[in-house]
Write a protein that binds this DNA or RNA. Structure first.
Lengths: 141, 141
DNA sequence: CTTGACTCCGTAGTATAGTCCAGGGTCTAT
DNA sequence: ATAGACCCTGGACTATACTACGGAGTCAAG
C-alpha cells in the first residue's frame, strides 16, 4: 500500500509534538476531544496539522484546572454559532470560583496542620503526641 | 439466637454516630482502617464503643487532607512503640508542604484565568473570544 | 528480504474513595 | 407469627484520567 496518499501525521508524531502519550491521544479520540482522523488503507491514522493545536489547547486548559468534560464543553462552545464570548467567560469565572473554593479549603487544612505541628515540639513517644491527641478530640477549632 | 451476648453496637449505629455510610464502614474494615469486630452468632458485627473515636479520627484526618493510605500509616504509627512524636510531626509537615504546593498551583491557575477573563469584556461571538484565543496561542505568560 | 520500529484493536488494569445491588438471613415490636 | 427494619456476602459499578497488554499487521531502511 502507501502509494501516493497524502500521509499527514502519524499518531506517534502527533503524540510527541503535543506532549502526550499515544494511548492518551487515542483516549482523547474515543472520548470525543479530538476528531476521528482519516485513515490510510492500512488503517493508520493520518492526522492533519490542526490536531496539534487542538491537543495543545487541551493541554493548556488542563493546566488551568479544567476537567476533560469541561474542556469538551469549551471545544463545543467554540464551534457553536449561537455561543457568545460571555458563555466562555462564564465557564472561566465558574472555574475561578471553583479554584478559589479549593484554595480556601486547602488553606484551612494547612492552618490547622500548622497549628498542630506547632504544638508538637517534643521528641516523645506517639502516645503523647499532641497531633494525634488533637485528632482524637472532638474539637479542632 | 441472641441469648445474652453482650451486643455492642451494630454497624448501622456506628455509621450513624460516626457520620459515615454503612458501606463505607465496611469498606474501611476491608481496607484495614478499622479492626474486624467480633460477630454475633448471626454474623452481625458487634462493635465496641472505641470504633466511634477511631472513625472520627479518620474523618478529621480526611478533613485535613490525608488520604486513606496516609491515615492508615498514622494509625499504624500510633500503635508502634518505636515511633516517636516527631514521626507524626514529619507526616504533618510533609502534608503541609504538599498542601502548600497544591495551593500554589491553584493560585497560578486562578491568576491566569482571572487575567483571561479580564481581557474578555465583549459580548461578541466565540470566534473572537480572547480566552479561547489565549488557549490557542503558545504563550500564556 | 529482513529487521526493528511503529501502529492497529479491544480489553483490562491502575489509583482513589466509595456506592449499589441481589438475594438471602435476622431482629424486634406488635 | 409476622411485618418491617436491619444486616450479611460477593461482586459490580461510579467517576477521573489515563496506562498497559496481547497479538496482529505495516512501514521504512539497509
Amino acid at each position: 500500500m502507501n502509494l501516493d496518499e497524502p500521509k499527514g501525521l502519524t499518531i506517534g508524531e502527533v503524540a510527541r509534538r503535543a506532549g502526550f502519550g499515544i494511548e492518551t491521544v487515542r483516549f482523547y479520540e474515543r472520548n470525543g476531544l479530538i476528531d476521528e482522523p482519516p485513515r490510510r488503507l492500512s488503517g493508520y491514522r493520518q492526522y492533519p496539522e490542526s490536531v496539534i493545536s487542538r491537543l495543545r489547547f487541551i493541554k493548556r486548559a488542563k493546566e488551568l484546572g479544567f476537567s476533560l468534560r469541561e474542556i469538551k464543553e469549551l471545544l463545543s462552545l467554540r464551534v457553536d454559532p449561537t455561543a457568545t464570548c460571555s458563555d466562555i467567560r462564564g465557564r472561566a469565572e465558574a472555574k475561578i470560583a471553583d479554584i478559589h473554593g479549593r484554595i480556601l479549603a486547602l488553606e484551612r487544612m494547612k492552618d490547622v496542620l500548622t497549628r498542630l505541628t506547632g504544638s508538637c515540639v517534643e521528641a516523645g513517644p506517639v502516645s503523647e503526641c499532641p497531633i494525634l491527641e488533637a485528632l482524637d478530640r472532638e474539637d479542632r477549632g
